[in-house]
Design a protein around this nucleic acid. Structure first.
Lengths: 207, 207, 207, 207
DNA sequence: TATGAATGAGTGTTCATTCAT
DNA sequence: GATGAATGAACACTCATTCAT
C-alpha cells in the first residue's frame, strides 16, 4: 500500500506535537505562563524555534492545546445528574462528580497550577475559555440546585448566591489540596469533607 | 504663618500621587497588571514618564501602594472573634466580619479585579503579599473552627479541608459578585446567604 | 550710599557660585564626571536644582568653570624661558617651570584626577580645552628645544618626536604621582628625577 | 561530507560577528565609548537591534571583545628581555619591543583612540583591564631598570620616578603620533627618537 | 520539513533641563 | 532670586514571530 508513507508521516507529526505539548506542560508549570518564553519551550522539547511555529501558530496556541485536553476531561466529568428511575442515588452521583473533577485536576497538576496561579488576564482567549468553563460549572450547580428544590430536599436558600458559594468551595479545595499542595491528593477524604460541608454545613444539629 | 507655601506644595504632591494612583487603579483593572505598561499609566493620568518616576520608583511600586490600602482595610476587617462575656453573639460577629471583607473589596472593585484575575506570578513581591493575606485568612478560619469545636457548637468535621472550603466559599462570592459582576453588591443578601450556606448547608432538616 | 545693596548682592552671588564650584570639585573627583548627576551636585552644595541652573547653564559649564581656574594657573606656570642677560640659568628656570606645573596640579588633585581619569570625549568642549592646553605645552616644549639647539646645548635630536616624549614624561609622573597616588607629592624629588631623566637619559656616561 | 551546511553556518556567524566588531570599532572611535549608543552601533553595521544582542550580550561586551584582541597583541609584544648568552643585544631587543608596541597600536588606531581618549571610568571592567595592562607595563619597565642597574650600564637614578617617566614617554608618542595624528606612523623614526631620548637624554655630551 | 539567525516594536527606567510658583 | 516638580527624549535591553536556507 502506498499510504504507508503518508501514515508514517502523520504519526511522526502527531508524535512531535505531543513532544512539544508534554515539554510545554512541564515548563509552564515550573516557570509560569508569563515567565515562560518560546526559548524555554523549544529548549525543553529539543526542537528548533521554527519547528515550534510549524506545529503551533503562537505560544498562546500551545497553551490552548493543553487547555483543550484538560477542559475536555473536566467537561466529561461534569455529567448531568441522572434522575431516571433506577439511577444511582443523587448523593452518590454528586460524590462521583466531585471526585471526578478533583481527580482530573490532580491528574494534571502542572497545568492546573498554571491555570489557578496566573489568571492570564493578558491572554484574552485563554481567560475566556476558563471563564466559559467556570460558567458551565456554575450553570450545572444552579441546575442541580433547581432540581433539589423541585424534589423538596433543599432548605429554602438564595440559589444564585449559594451556587457561587458551591463553586467557590470546590475552588477552595482545588487550590489548597492540588495547586498549593506538595503531598498527593486524598480524593475520598476531600470529596467527603466537601460534600459534608456543603450538605450539612458546620452547625451541630438540633440546637 | 509663612508655612503656607510649604503646606500647599505638600498638598499638591499628595494630590498628584493620588491622581497617579487613581488612574493606575483604573488602568490596571482594565488591562491587567501585566498588560499595563508605564506608557499606559502615564497616558491615563496625564503626566510625563519622568513625573511618574518622581512619585513611584517603579511600576511595581504603584501596584504595591494600591495593595497597601486594600490589604490594610482587609486586615482591619479580619478581627478575631470576641468571646468575652458581654460581647456580641458570635453569629453577629461573624456576619460583621464577612460583611466587612465584602464591603472592603466592593469598595475597590478595580483593584480587587486585578488581584483575583491575575496571579501576578511574575511579580514576586505582590504575589507574596497576597499569599500572606490568604494565609492570614486561612489561619483565622482554622482558629474560628477550633473555637467552635471547643464550644461544642460544630458538627464533627474534617477541619483542615473544611477550612479550605470556607475560604473558597468566600472567594467564590467575591469573584462572582464583585470581580465578575457589573451590578452593585448587595452585601446583606450575600452575607446572609454565605453564612446560611456555611452554617446550615443545603439540606432540608430533619429528613 | 545706596550701592551697598547692589554690592552685597553681588558678593552673595559670588559666594554662592564658589559654594557650588567647591562642592562640584569634590563630587566630580569622587564619582567621576560621567558618574556625577546634577542631583548629586545640588545635593552636595545644598541648593535647589533650579538655583544651580541660575549660576551655571549646564552641568558641563560647572566643569568648565573649574577647568578655567586650573588652566589659568597652569598657563601662568608655563612662562617662556627668559634668556635675557642676568636672568637665572636656564636649568634653574626649567626646574622652576616643571615644579610649578606639578605644584599646580598637586594643588587641585580632585580636578586633576577627573581630567586624567576621564577623557571626556563626549564633552567636546572640555576635551577641546584640554587638547588646547596640551598643544600649548607641546609648543612650549618645541620652542624650548629650538632655543636649546640654537644655543648648541642639545644633542642633535628629532625635535618633533622628542617634544612628544617630553610632554609624555611630564604626563607620566603626573598620573603616577598625583592622579593615582595616595601619598603627598614630593615636588623636588620628582622634578629632579624628571629633569635628570630628560637631560641625561638613562645611560652611564663615557662607557 | 554532510557537514558542509554546519560549517557554512558557523562561518556565516563568524562573519557577522566580525562585521559587528568592525563597525563598532569605527563608531566607538568616531563618537567615543560613552557617546555611542546601541542604536548607532546597529545602524553602522546594518543589523537589527535584536541581531546585535544575539552576538554580544551587551554594549560593554563588544567593547571588551575589541579590547581582547588589542591587549593580547600588546601582551605578546611585551616580552621579557632575553639576557642569555647569544641573545640579541639588549638595545636591539628594546627597540624591537618599542617598535612592536607602537605597531600594534598603530594597527588598531580606532580602538587605541578610544582607549586613550576616554578613561571609561564608568565601565569598571574595561577600565580595570586597561589599568592592568598599565601595571604590567610599569612592572616591565621597573624590571628592565633593575637589570640595567645590575649590569652597571645605568646612571644612578631615582628608579621609581624614572619608571613613571619612561611609561609616560611611550604614552606621549602614542598619543601624539597615533591617537591625535592623521598621518601614518613612521615606526622606525619614532622608535629611534624614543630610545635616543630615553637613553641619552637631551644634553650634548662632554659638557 | 526543520532550522536558527534575523527582526523591530516594545519594555521599564534615567536624567539634564525648564518653568510656574 | 530661589525653588523643586515636571518634562520627554534617550537609554540598554527583550522576545514573539518570520523567513531564507
Amino acid at each position: 500500500m502506498s499510504d504507508g508513507r503518508v501514515e508514517r508521516a502523520a504519526a511522526a507529526r502527531e508524535a512531535r506535537r505531543e513532544q512539544i505539548l508534554d515539554a510545554a506542560r512541564v515548563v509552564f508549570a515550573a516557570r509560569g505562563y508569563h515567565g515562560t518564553g518560546v526559548s524555554e519551550l523549544v529548549a525543553a522539547c529539543g526542537v528548533a524555534r521554527g519547528t515550534f511555529y510549524q506545529y503551533f501558530p503562537s505560544k498562546e496556541a500551545v497553551f490552548h492545546a493543553l487547555l483543550d485536553v484538560l477542559l475536555a476531561r473536566l467537561g466529561a466529568a461534569l455529567v448531568p445528574v441522572d434522575r431516571r428511575p433506577g439511577a444511582a442515588p443523587v448523593s452518590v452521583q454528586l460524590r462521583a462528580i466531585v471526585s471526578g473533577l478533583l481527580a482530573v485536576m490532580d491528574g494534571d497538576r502542572a497545568l492546573t497550577r498554571v491555570l489557578f496561579r496566573e489568571a492570564l488576564a493578558s491572554d484574552g482567549a485563554a481567560d475566556a475559555r476558563m471563564a466559559h468553563f467556570h460558567r458551565d460549572l456554575a450553570a450545572w450547580v444552579r441546575h442541580a440546585l433547581a432540581l433539589g428544590v423541585a424534589d423538596g430536599i433543599l432548605r429554602p436558600i438564595d440559589r444564585d448566591v449559594v451556587a457561587d458559594c458551591i463553586v467557590g468551595t470546590l475552588r477552595g479545595v482545588i487550590v489548597a489540596r492540588i495547586v498549593d499542595a506538595a503531598e498527593p491528593l486524598d480524593v475520598d477524604r476531600v470529596a467527603d469533607a466537601v460534600l459534608g460541608y456543603a450538605w450539612e454545613g458546620l452547625s451541630a444539629r438540633g440546637a
